[in-house]
Design a protein around this nucleic acid. Structure first.
Length: 888
RNA sequence: GCCGAGGUGGUGGAAUGGCAGACACGAAGGUCUCAAAAACCUUUGGAGCUUAAACUCCGUGGGGGUUCGACUCCCCCUCUCGGCACCA
């Protein structure tokens, strides 16, 4: 503690006025760059880190250099209504954590930006009859104003907006790199289409088969789409999960989404035809019970039948045609709704089961998914509920091959008898009496040795559909040349392309645009067309171009890319917002490859790698799968291209909770948005952020109500008043007061470390109650208290800190360290229990040894002694008759 | 259906297996005031008992178990909330 004369007091009787204090400090922090680390420095210190309580001091205290801490939060998409209190809760909490880490001696980089591109923002613009460009300009201003007003310690010089050409230039560059690596391809694919909104929807915008916004039933349409080959990284995405410091829940969600399944593809001969059908199964053990084959409407055998490649009765062909047409028109929701009622049509073909010789009828049914496995399955109605439903509906045979726990060996006639999970084999020749899991392995070996099939691994994960037939996104920077396509030329047949990839002949005609950005033009009619083409397709001045290869006429891609691509790499750009010619930190050899990159830019790119990967990433649990998976994929791809040297972007991810209102997520459509501006005006940002964090655990959130905010306001005012009105002395603190101080420090530090802000605040309140009962306050107590409170109430504590005569910001001072010695107790209180009831307590000295005697005496009297304490003694356990344990 | 997280006063919520309900809101009573607001003080899980100090019993969704001791660990049931879902 600094040496200040006793009885120092400061500016007495000043009333706490957040309206003047908060903007004052915000302006000062900005001006002095308190939260702006020098990204290039080997030991980057924020602007005001000098002076007595500075980092220098702390460094020497700790005896080591400060460490870099990249404190990242998921950036918001700027909506017209602005921030709501839910965002104050999440951003506030993350900022509290960042401020804590800063005081702990880390160099914290805490950037902020706006995810302004995308369907959300575009829809809003459409609804309000606004243009997305104008809309973005307005909301941006409002958002940054609000983000300033809550007093978070952002590095404002490093903000990004995804719709800024300086940003999406690199989003497009990233697309080009993926294309060149063979990770981006174009193919025909069915997509979700909302007939009412006249637009395609992303999978995540389809909820239970309905459009997220208008609840119309979503249709499927076939469109030419760009995809990213994320499936190439399925295995790495899965195996890396193990080593991530993420919550179990999020890891599991990712695992499930990737959905690795190990099974086997079995090929069956079709009777009387020179053709086969291959199915995928994870349960080949049940093959002796297989009685039919079902194939998806999209299966190639179906088209063979319809086109006559495989000839069958034309009446049946017609029936199939009718069925296929019907199935295609069925929406997702209808398919699910009708889930219980199976449908299908018989092809008049049979497949031979090589084990039983059973002639399995081949059916076409829409309960078989075209995109999973081989798009065909073998039906074992005795041991799969869906197969059972199908078999009963079409009166196919049901054969039992597994006996479950119930021991039932009789025929299977009801769905309750269908045994899926475990049991023992029966009626299966060489597999009989084997456990089904063992039988599965044995059967797979057998099938492979006989050449009937081959083990395969399938994933639930599909390639990432990146195209959007929309306006408000970065144009996909690709050029298509018709004449090159005819000759089979593409970027992959050029010198550069050949060197990197082989066999991408299906990409004939495609070349990447090297001259980036491909700017999104300001067009009046930006609304989605609903024709399967993007609005830019109506603008020849945009899409007409020349072929980079042959110089002939060529056209640009008019689709834009998915907003998840924008947000998939933003954390890299934050560190390079001032580098015009290099997208993000990378080794200087790589950085030098960029055209126009200056020497200093290359050096910066090299140095700033030290900040990566992200130290701590905090965001909504709703992004546990898609966004995080995409960011991981892009990072892995960039690593393989040599641009980054790590394959996981976020060392640690923490999912915060949500502040809801009346049981529902806040949204304008529900009319339950709480605007923080009013609260900030009335109570101040300090009160609001502390109150929200006190409302509930950070990983849970809570229901917003303002009934308690007065209490928080009262608390902060009381703290202000206590320290203003009390005599501040420098005399020696009593042991009791030292103990209280150090207990609070210890508890609060642990809470902050684990992001348990609500309990941390509660401890500060308890400590306040203790201090308020004292006649005078010691300077050390004031300083410690202000520091502990500083992350929550940065403005108020800064003001008080400065009133104490400190020259430098409290936020660059050091976090109080607790001292074990004040927590130790020489006297240990022992609880005496008789028959499990607390009888009395007695105090024994741990040191003098008499305790043991005493305990032995109590033991003889059949008394249970247990406990504690916070000093050195962890636990004392005594059971009747003997001393079991005495841990010091 | 599968997976995950939960169930504690009037409310939000605290409790490394060790005195359940920290802290706060609300409520009740009081001080100040002509009055109100603000501020401050006291009480506040339920039941019983006592002149009082104090004390006793019951209590963490329900039922079992492990333990000297369980909100906490294990098993079964139940309800709520999230995620995935005709994935073979």
């Amino acid at each position: 503690m600094s040496k200040i004369k006793a009885k120092t007091t400061y500016s007495k009787r000043k009333v706490y006025d957040h309206l003047s204090i908060e903007p004052k400090w915000q302006a000062k922090w900005d001006k002095e760059g308190v939260y702006q680390p020098d990204l290039d420095a080997a030991n980057p210190s924020a602007g005001s880190r000098k002076g007595p309580s500075s980092l220098k001091n702390r460094k020497s205290e700790a005896g080591k250099k400060s460490k870099l801490f990249y404190n990242l939060m998921m950036f918001p998409y700027p909506s017209a209504e602005g921030l709501h209190v839910g965002s104050i809760f999440t951003f506030g909490g993350i900022d509290v954590y960042g401020r804590f880490k800063r005081m702990m001696g880390y160099d914290v980089f805490e950037p902020m930006g706006l995810d302004g591109f995308g369907i959300h923002s575009e829809n809003h613009a459409i609804k309000t009859n606004d243009h997305p460009v104008d809309h973005a300009k307005r909301t941006e201003k409002n958002f940054y104003r609000q983000l300033h007003a809550i007093g978070n310690s952002y590095a404002w010089k490093n903000k990004v907006e995804t719709y800024d050409p300086d940003y999406y230039r690199w989003t497009q560059w990233l697309f080009v790199q993926l294309f060149k690596s063979g990770l981006a391809y174009k193919k025909n694919s069915p997509v979700n289409f909302c007939p009412s909104c006249k637009t395609v929807l992303s999978d995540e915008q389809v909820i239970d088969g309905q459009c997220e916004r208008c609840n119309s039933v979503v249709e499927k349409r076939d469109l030419e789409q760009w995809f990213f080959k994320i499936t190439k990284y399925a295995e790495q995405l899965l195996s890396n999960i193990e080593g991530l410091d993420w919550s179990h829940k999020v890891k599991l969600a990712q695992k499930n989404w990737i959905g690795k399944k190990e099974g086997i593809n079995i090929t069956y001969q079709i009777a009387n035809f020179q053709d086969t059908v291959t199915i995928f199964t994870t349960r080949p053990d049940t093959n002796y019970g297989a009685t039919f084959i079902a194939i998806a409407p999209e299966h190639e055998l179906v088209s063979k039948l319809l086109t006559g490649v495989v000839q069958i009765d034309h009446q049946i062909v017609e029936k199939i045609q009718v069925y296929i047409d019907k199935a295609k028109n069925k929406s997702e929701i209808e398919r699910v709704a009708e889930g219980k009622e199976k449908s299908g049509v018989f092809t008049d073909l049979y497949a031979m089961n090589p084990f039983t010789g059973y002639q399995m009828p081949i059916w076409v049914s829409d309960f078989v998914l075209g995109g999973f496995g081989t798009g065909a399955l073998v039906g074992v109605p005795g041991h799969d509920k869906r197969d059972f439903e199908f078999a009963t509906k079409f009166e196919l045979e049901i054969i039992r091959v597994v006996v479950g726990k119930d021991g039932d060996k009789g025929p299977i006639t009801t769905i309750e008898q269908v045994q899926e999970e475990d049991g023992v084999m029966i009626n299966s020749e060489f597999l009989d009496s084997m456990d089904i899991h063992k039988a599965t392995e044995k059967m797979m070996d057998h099938i492979e040795s006989k050449g009937y099939g081959k083990r395969v691994v399938t994933y639930h994960l599909r390639d990432w559909l990146i195209s959007r037939q929309r306006y408000w996104g970065p144009p996909i920077p690709m050029i298509y040349c018709e004449s090159c396509a005819k000759t089979g030329d593409s970027w992959f047949t050029t010198k550069e392309g050949k060197a990197s990839k082989d066999d991408l002949s299906e990409m004939a005609g495609w070349y990447p645009e090297e001259n980036l950005p491909v700017k999104l033009p300001y067009i009046k009619n930006f609304k989605p067309l609903g024709t399967g083409k993007a609005p830019l397709a109506n603008h020849p001045e945009f899409y007409e171009t020349t072929c980079p290869h042959c110089g002939g006429k060529a056209i640009r891609e008019t689709d834009v890319s998915d907003t998840f691509l924008d947000s998939g790499w933003y954390f890299l750009r934050y560190l390079a917002t001032d580098l015009k010619n290099i997208p993000f930190p990378m080794a200087k050899e790589k950085a030098a490859e960029f055209k126009n990159a200056t020497k200093s830019e290359i050096e910066s790119a090299e140095k700033r790698r030290a900040w990566l990967p992200v130290t701590s990433y905090i965001g909504g649990a709703e992004h546990s799968v898609l966004h995080l998976l995409y960011a991981r994929f892009l990072t892995m791809a960039l690593k393989d291209m040599g641009y980054v040297d790590f394959d996981e972007p976020f060392a640690r991810f923490y999912a915060h909770g949500l502040i809801i209102k009346d049981g529902a997520k806040m949204s304008k459509s529900k009319g339950n948005i709480i605007n923080p501006d009013d609260y900030i005006h009335k109570y101040g940002a300090d009160t609001l952020r502390t109150y929200l964090l006190f409302l509930g655990p950070f990983n849970q959130g809570g229901d917003f109500r303002d009934s308690g905010i007065d209490g928080m306001s009262r608390f902060l005012k009381r703290v202000w008043k206590l320290f203003e009105d009390s005599e501040v002395t420098n005399s020696r603190l009593t042991d009791e007061r030292l103990k209280m101080m150090h207990e609070t420090i210890k508890g609060a530090t642990e809470d902050m470390e684990n992001l348990r802000f609500n309990t941390s605040i509660a401890k500060l309140m308890t400590y306040y109650n203790f201090l308020s009962k004292q006649i005078e306050i010691h300077r050390e107590e004031v300083e410690v208290y202000l520091k502990l409170l500083a992350p929550f109430a940065p403005h108020m504590t800064e003001e008080m800190w400065s009133n104490l005569g400190n020259e430098f910001s409290i936020h660059t001072s050091s976090w109080p360290m607790f001292d074990e010695k004040y927590l130790k107790q020489e006297n240990v209180t022992i609880a005496v229990q008789v028959n499990g009831k607390l009888r009395s307590t007695l105090t024994v000295s741990v040191k003098d040894g008499s305790d043991k005697e005493l305990l032995e005496k109590m033991a003889r009297e059949d008394v249970h002694v247990s406990k504690f304490l916070d000093g050195g003694v962890r636990k004392v356990i005594l059971v009747p008759g003997k001393i079991l344990n005495f841990v010091v």
